[in-house]
Nucleic acid binder design. Structure first.
Lengths: 346, 346
DNA sequence: TGCAGAAATGGTAGCGCTACCATTAACGTG
DNA sequence: CACGTTAATGGTAGCGCTACCATTTCTGCA
């Protein structure tokens, strides 16, 4: 009868007390047998395991979290899910968690700092084991939340001077400059810039473009076209067409990302402009399709999977209080220069 | 002094008891003021709100979950994150949650039923408010977990006869058949099938291909090529090349998805086979790039965003115990037939 | 043989919140 | 005006687990 009223609350599932009773040990020993087996004698460990099996016991993560004020959740905030870039990053993270008892709680900030703050507030309440955030441009409030969260924090996608805790990424500015220098070395001179979304990392790639153009004395603001609109292949077509129409002599474009570059290629095919002879095209990120295009498209390979994998490994290491070797890891980038930037026809 | 030892456990954050004390009410009234404001007089509600503000109180979701045996988490399991298809679905889900106090917990089953079971076990323990899973081919164990989870369940991406609870999707078989019928109507005869991954939904699209080919008397197993490998543009190139090389007279291909179709287009350009005159190409899903390609690529538009949005709305409705109008919602599909299937050159 | 120290186990007391029921006050209604 | 009804508030008792400390048992070594 007491049981009836009790059942209304819980679902009547076995608790660790039931396991302990059946195994003939105290609840705390049963708890230890599950969490720190090496601290329990082999005999009792076996009894507990048998009881767990017999009852079909599964621990309640909420009770565990309340009692220990920590969860097995690792909060991850990315600015976009539509973007293939983050899909690769997430793949790396999930792979790093293989066989680990942690779970990812994913948040999508949609490139909005206010949304990031809101998500961080929600995540921090849950006492996560670690937090991983994208970029280095958190608001003051967001930084404060991360600092107070009392768990390891990893910033990913780019590197900068002032990590909240740990960082793994690369320099978008250097990468942008490197592509443009390559275009110049290939013989292109009127090199336009096409950019969409223009989030902070895009801005820094544009900085790199400026660096390279200015040092070669080729800088010209009129061959830059950007929009805050989200990137797409169609947008790449439109932006390229606009730029090509208004800028006489344009002989190459550096696109902020690969979708835009693919769009530029399609528009060149549409306008019957030979690539790379009449127009050189370079993208950014080196998504899988770039190598498969006809002609193959140049891009900058970024180590997205590795950023995901390594950031998660760094987080796990810090959770387990292993010494931190390096707080800032720069994974660099690699130029993947293909047919689309082979040089102008002579 | 008592405080010192207490601080070790919790982080010393204010609790609802602190709020209640400051507001001059009992803890339970403070709790109600936050969760069911209409049950508390306006005066006390104001006092509680002021106390919350003054202390910077944030409720502990873990304690809340333990006491009420429910969380504000909605578990979502998708088979892939690399796939743009699910990015759109997730966007719809997040949009449906706008302004709601629920959170998504995302799991990636990687197209592995065993992984799905594992994730469901983990999710179910947490007493989620709802669960959303992809596809209709759950294992017996997975179905049992979902049934026992004691929360609304929505299966998405396709429809079928035997919903666990609710369902929103469309018929992949009908969609596959519809494209192929269109290709036949456009004048193509030797229509090949190119498929990667071959998960259950891909299998059903292939079924549809068979339906249409057989009813036209054009069926020929030798012009079907499939692989369990994950889809990619490069793979599309390779598979198309293999198929075109070995099948004389091939005049069109229906690709399992858009990545493969794009790869087929690139390979046609590479092999100098005019599209659509010499080869017709159709994909599946109608990703954004399809309309932007040169020539524009035909595909089947699927309502991915809407599946995400609606599935979440159905889940929310069921959580709030609104009456369920329809358990199975078929959102259908639409043929997006473009230049790449304009018909063979005569 | 005695004893310090480690290893194994258990008792107690919450973690912060809410379900459940009880109580009180305010309001008709016949 | 007694009595049921509703609205507003509070007291009690956990939810299921683990931190903390205490206790017991087992080593190894002087």
């Amino acid at each position: 009868m007491d049981r009836t009223s009790r059942r209304r609350r819980g679902a009547g599932r076995p608790t660790i007390a039931d396991v302990a009773r059946l195994a003939g040990v105290s609840p705390i020993t049963a708890s230890r047998a599950l969490r720190e087996p090496q601290k329990v004698s082999e005999e009792l460990r076996g009894n507990v395991a048998a009881a767990v099996e017999a009852l079909g016991y599964v621990p309640d993560p909420n009770a565990r979290a309340l009692a220990s004020s920590r969860t097995d959740v690792i909060g991850v905030i990315v600015p976009s899910l539509t973007n293939n870039v983050f899909a690769d990053v997430l793949r790396g993270m999930y792979d790093a968690l293989e066989g680990q008892a942690y779970q990812i709680q994913l948040g999508n900030s949609r490139y909005q700092p206010a949304e990031e703050e809101r998500l961080l507030t929600t995540f921090a309440r849950q006492k996560p084991s670690a937090l991983i955030v994208s970029g280095i441009d958190q608001t003051e409030t967001a930084r404060a939340i991360l600092q107070d969260a009392d768990c390891p924090v990893v910033q990913i996608m780019e590197t900068g001077p002032d990590p909240i805790d740990m960082m793994v990424g690369f320099s978008h500015r250097d990468a942008g400059a490197a592509v443009v220098r390559h275009l110049i070395a290939s013989g292109y001179r009127r090199i336009g810039f096409i950019g969409a979304r223009m989030d902070p990392r895009s801005q820094r790639r544009l900085q790199g473009y400026h660096d390279a153009m200015d040092e070669a004395g080729l800088g010209d603001p009129s061959i830059i076209i950007t929009t805050p609109a989200p990137s797409s292949v169609t947008l790449g077509r439109h932006l390229f067409r606009d730029l090509a129409t208004r800028s006489a002599g344009l002989d190459a474009v550096f696109c902020n990302n690969d979708d835009l570059a693919l769009g530029a290629l399609f528009e060149c095919q549409n306008m019957a402009l030979p690539v790379p002879g009449r127009v050189g095209i370079a993208g950014f990120n080196d998504l899988e399709m770039m190598a498969a295009a006809t002609p193959s498209l140049s891009s900058v390979r970024t180590y997205r999977y590795d950023m995901g994998l390594l950031s998660m490994r760094m987080a796990l290491g810090a959770i387990q209080e292993e010494p931190i070797e390096e707080r800032i890891v720069d994974l660099g980038f690699e130029l993947a220069m293909r047919d689309s930037t082979a040089g102008p026809a002579t």
